[in-house]
Write a protein that binds this DNA or RNA. Structure first.
Lengths: 225, 225, 225, 225
DNA sequence: GATGAATGAGTCTTCATTCAT
DNA sequence: TATGAATGAAGACTCATTCAT
């Protein structure tokens, strides 16, 4: 199914490998290539042959490692996400720092775990393909969104409990305050690359402003009187 | 490109006359059907035959009104978006109400113009297909995102000028505060339908919380002392 | 089945007819249009809609006069050829002129009946479509080639009988001497329009040379001693 | 576009290995099959699947070697013609034989290079499709017709220069005297297969007669007195 | 293992034909 | 009659998948 406006130059095979490739690294290389192309073009519009070429192997080789396009996709989602969700939030939980500082850690941590990594691409891809792969959507929700939400929720609850933050509707707040970071990550793989770069705001400035606004929203009532 | 096991039963056709002449209404019906399926499945994975069947016509009929799949897609984007971007923000500009009230109008207005309409679906689709149709991405940016940003920016600037809001980085704030609504709209067509409904927060509650937090973030410094 | 290198601009409907069209003339107009397009593009690559448009009517109207594309084709062959083969050769038979003069009449007559008329186009079309429409090929052979051959054969036999020509293999001669005229007719609708015009020889010069060569070939032996 | 009732039985495939790898020989086999079917049915009416089946491969395989139907057609014309036009006429030029003998060589050589080879089919096909593929028509004119004309023209000029032939209009003569052979070649792939075989004259008889008539037409004037 | 030639089901698109108006 | 909207069978072309080498 040709997606018209994009010519498909034969993707150059990777140049002669400097070392003989170890077969253990193949799956990771294929997944890397698949991620890049799925994110850019979408699942249906990406040809397995392009993925293979991107990874420097032939079409047939791909099938030695993945049983089908769909399996490749699922493996990609699982393997790309799982390592990223392991440890985030654990350091935060035990810290003794002020909750506002934990918030900063959370936002900047999210960004460094999402916006700066492949997870940003995966997020866009999941959003795009969710209806075609509901399993993956649920997996993403369960393994990324929910744990991420818990981190923020925990911080907010801690802050409220310690009197640092005023009492708020934590469930809604989590949704509201994850959104800017999540959307920025998604955007960076869809609309942003098509538009003038000056429309894209520097992440540091973006995150600092976000943090500041959130902290103000959380400031205890008495501070307002 | 068969996406997973999606059954495609031939929809039974009404008996009486084999077909009707409905030249006027066909294009709109086809666009409606196309929107629904493109949003749900993505551009590449949607078969024209399904769109036609959804609109109650045959495959060939589609080609009487749209020269190709791509033309249908472009027409759909243009025709679905254009009527929605006409008048929003004009009422707000002239109002005499407090800026906080304008903010409420803006947020709830966005939602009623986006979340509750087909624009939410289009947003998801554009995000998903932007890289394959950069023209459409730019069109969306220019006709939806930028005008929407201007409405919020105008309110914020007015509030600041009138001393109702403290001075802030308006450009960043606009990005931050559009995000929750935009992401909720996108989400509602991708992840949300795949997950338990209790994960979806009621829009009213969501918007009210958003408004409250934003207003607190905007509260003038003196009020904080 | 798009024949690529030819764009298909919507053929302009004939301008508003100056008089109300008489329905009796429709079939002839349609056949005229069909002939032109079939000759130019071939049977399969010609769309009925183009034929109809060429004749200034709509697609549906065509079916009021011809049951199918194939019937149109057959009617076209029959109706275009039959009137042309009626009377040719009759005047020649009775003439008292020298046989060389009859030869001249024959060659120039052929040309004026073939090269200068639609029969030249039909010839090309029949040659092109013969294998797909063997009936038409046989019809053409029976109604055009064979009668044409008989005219020439009769002249040659008369000339031989009267001692004007030397005895020859008339059957072969007829084939040989019809060929230049027939091929020129066919060529004028296929290769010639694609090549530089200077490659096309003026018919008068062509026919005169042909006649001269044929007459020399027919000159009685004694004249050679 | 179904041309009449041509049955298309799925050709049963040999059992043993499902297929063989024959990268080298495939293109030639496909071109061979394409030539046969294009000549017989015409370009538009020939289905690629039939060509593939004729060559013993599947539809998809064809696309491994030719990018499109049109490319197949063009490759077929080029590759079929080029090897045939290499050396013809070179032996003739240097000969010391009487010009009448060269004429015989030319006519019989043409026939053995055209009538008896696939070039006869190509000629018919080119004539049929010229208007749809003007490039190919020009190519044919330039690579086949013009060189062939030059051979005959050179012989005639040599004969005239040596006093063996009387002075004539060589340009016209070449056109006139190539025609019977060319038309016989074309005819053999269009009308002839549809008609009674007794209408087809034996090539030997045909060529000998042609040669004799031409030589008489060329006999020097003095010989006639 | 690795390759890429071969396959064939699937999808876009065209167009001869039908039929409601 | 005339129209042209609607139909659907058919064909060009793609690409996930298989398998001979």
């Amino acid at each position: 199914m040709p997606i018209s406006p994009r010519p498909r130059p034969k993707p150059p095979r990777a140049p002669a490998p400097r070392w003989e490739r170890r077969k253990e690294s193949r799956p990771a290389e294929l997944i890397e290539a698949a991620l890049e192309l799925f994110v850019e073009r979408g699942y249906a519009a990406t040809r397995l042959e392009d993925i293979a070429a991107h990874a420097g192997v032939s079409k047939g080789t791909l099938y030695l490692y993945f049983a089908s396009k769909e399996e490749l996709f699922k493996a990609l989602v699982r393997q790309s996400i799982v390592p990223l969700i392991e440890t985030f939030g654990q350091g935060i939980a035990q810290s003794d720092a002020p909750s506002s500082e934990l918030l900063r850690l959370c936002f900047f941590g999210w960004w460094s775990k999402i916006g700066a990594t492949r997870l940003s691409g995966i997020s866009k891809m999941i959003v795009a393909e969710a209806r075609n792969f509901p399993d993956m959507a649920r997996f993403f929700q369960k393994e990324v969104v929910t744990p991420g939400s818990r981190v923020l929720a925990a911080i907010l609850e801690r802050g409220i409990a310690r009197g640092e933050f005023r009492p708020i509707d934590v469930e809604v707040a989590v949704n509201l305050w994850m959104a800017p970071i999540a959307l920025k990550a998604i955007w960076s793989h869809s609309i942003a690359p098509c538009c003038a770069p000056e429309l894209v705001i520097d992440p540091e400035r973006f995150l600092n402003a976000h943090l500041e606004f959130v902290l103000r929203a959380l400031a205890p009532e008495k501070a307002l009187t």
